[in-house]
């Protein structure tokens, strides 16, 4: 990577997933840097070297972007994307970050599964209410109105869990994004350190 054009092309290539106004802005920063360095009489090859590996820089830019988006919309997917990029750059302490992250993620996923079970249960209870409980004897308790009541209660609980789970997931994503931005390692000389 010895010329300005190669450098900017590589950067552009690596940032192709980033939406347009942002990508243009970011690449313009580096184009401007080359221009100023040139005005100061610095050879292009030197500028390329001091800027550092464009692939690493692109990953850093993409990671910051995903973290900012995750903080904004609380999106779990964006957080995971940012974490994958950061991990590939060796910026996180995997034992201290990944283990607690997985534990909380599993808890949150369990909560969503339980919530799904509540809604499925509500459907089942309503079905029993409408078409009669096939269980014999003491089990025939969800016939008619009882089944519908049970369905309503389950739906109510399901909605409560939905709201709580939604809030919990978002604050977890925001908190983790904030924590990781503060507690990441520094990129040194454009390479991992």
């Amino acid at each position: 990577m010895n010329t300005r054009n190669d450098y900017l092309q590589m950067l552009e290539q690596e940032l192709r997933d980033v939406p347009e106004p942002l990508r243009r802005d970011w690449i313009a920063d580096y184009a401007e840097h080359f221009r100023m360095a040139y005005e100061n009489g610095q050879p292009e090859a030197d500028t390329c070297r001091e800027l550092g590996d464009p692939r690493v820089i692109a990953r850093e830019l993409r990671m910051n972007y995903q973290f900012e988006q995750a903080k904004r919309d609380g999106s779990f997917v964006r957080l995971v994307r940012a974490m994958l990029i950061g991990t590939s750059l060796g910026l996180f302490n995997l034992i201290f970050v990944l283990a607690p992250f997985l534990v909380v993620s599993v808890l949150l996923i369990a909560m969503w599964v339980v919530d799904l079970a509540f809604f499925a249960g509500a459907l089942y209870a309503a079905w029993l209410g409408a078409f009669g409980d096939p269980n014999v004897g003491a089990g025939r308790q969800f016939n008619g109105i009882t089944g519908f009541s049970a369905a309503f209660i389950l739906i109510g609980l399901g909605i409560i869990i939905l709201v709580v789970g939604h809030k919990a997931t978002k604050s977890f994503v925001r908190g983790t994004a904030r924590y990781l931005q503060v507690n990441r390692k520094l990129l040194r000389d454009g390479v991992q350190s």
Partner: peptide, 16 residues
């Protein structure tokens, strides 16, 4: 002692 190119992501982040 960081790459010059790594400063721009910092500026971008602080801007965001």
């Amino acid at each position: 002692d960081i790459a010059v190119g790594s400063v721009y992501p910092i500026l971008n982040r602080l801007t965001q």
